[in-house]
């Protein structure tokens, strides 16, 4: 069968959602940010909520997230996205509000804002991309950098005695009564991508029903920061990140399913 016979509008099974803008993503080749952006926009499209959703962009690699997702956006200062989201959501409880934050943003400089927004049970959704490193500023140690892992500020590997160990903020916030749905996902393979998309849907549906705060951590790669090829970085992530940051739901419908 000729390819031209296949490539016809009636045979279309997958196309990038129009809710992603035409701008070329500013991310490195193979970076999970692009996939996560697209999944969020696919769910927004499927739920038909483009006209009711406002995103909060972080400081970090995703600082320009608003260039790529075709929804209204507010750009927050470093770490402050949950507070910014709180301000919007409190004045517009009927709209959808989400933050999109990296590990330095959410788990270091913005720890206070993260924990208190979770504790208040703000009806927002937090998308947390954990790649174990400060990507945009050049690969420095993040709160999530693994023990022994090299970064530009831990050139001989993270020494937990001197620098403290990596910590799992996702498990921490799952303990707070305000969080409704807490899960950890990845987007490096087709199966995980499909699961991650389901998680995004659950989170935004929960927001629709005012259930409390939903929090999705995506363990993702940073091939530039880790100094690997994109494909190798995904393998390294499976072998090194996943044992410390295990995949799966931590809290479902307000109940802990995993400690």
């Amino acid at each position: 069968m000729d390819i031209k016979e296949i490539i016809k509008p009636e045979n279309l099974v997958y196309k990038r959602t129009p809710l992603m803008t035409d701008a070329t993503l500013s991310y490195c080749p193979g970076c999970g940010h692009g996939t996560i952006h697209r999944l969020i926009m696919e769910v927004v499209e499927e739920m038909g909520i483009q006209q009711e959703i406002i995103g909060i962009a972080p400081v970090g690699c995703a600082v320009l997230a608003y260039e790529f997702m075709d929804v209204d956006f507010t750009e927050a200062a470093h770490g402050r996205a949950p507070a910014v989201a709180t301000g919007i959501k409190r004045l517009w409880p009927g709209k959808f509000v989400f933050t999109y934050q990296g590990d330095g943003d959410l788990a270091a400089i913005g720890t206070g804002e993260t924990i208190h927004a979770c504790n208040r049970g703000e009806n927002i959704t937090i998308f947390f991309v954990n790649n174990g490193i400060y990507g945009m500023t050049g690969g420095q140690m993040a709160p999530t950098t693994l023990e022994g892992m090299r970064s530009s500020t831990t050139p001989y590997g993270r020494n937990s005695t001197a620098m403290g160990p990596p910590y799992k903020i996702t498990e921490m916030i799952a303990q707070l009564p305000g969080t409704y749905y807490v899960t950890r996902q990845s987007v490096h393979k087709p199966g995980p991508v499909r699961k991650a998309k389901k998680a995004i849907r659950i989170a935004l549906e929960a927001q629709k029903e005012n259930k409390g705060l939903s929090f999705i951590e995506f363990v993702s790669n940073c091939n530039s920061g880790w100094k690997m090829t994109p494909v190798d970085s995904n393998i390294w992530m499976e072998e090194n990140m996943f044992p410390f940051y295990p995949m799966g739901d931590i809290k479902v419908e307000g109940k802990l399913v995993k400690n």
Binding site: I6, V13, P190
Partner: peptide, 18 residues
Amino acid sequence: CTNCAVVCPDGVITVYRV
């Protein structure tokens, strides 16, 4: 199968099937 398209970080792949 669309596996390539769903994992493509830049969303550059369109898939057709018959």
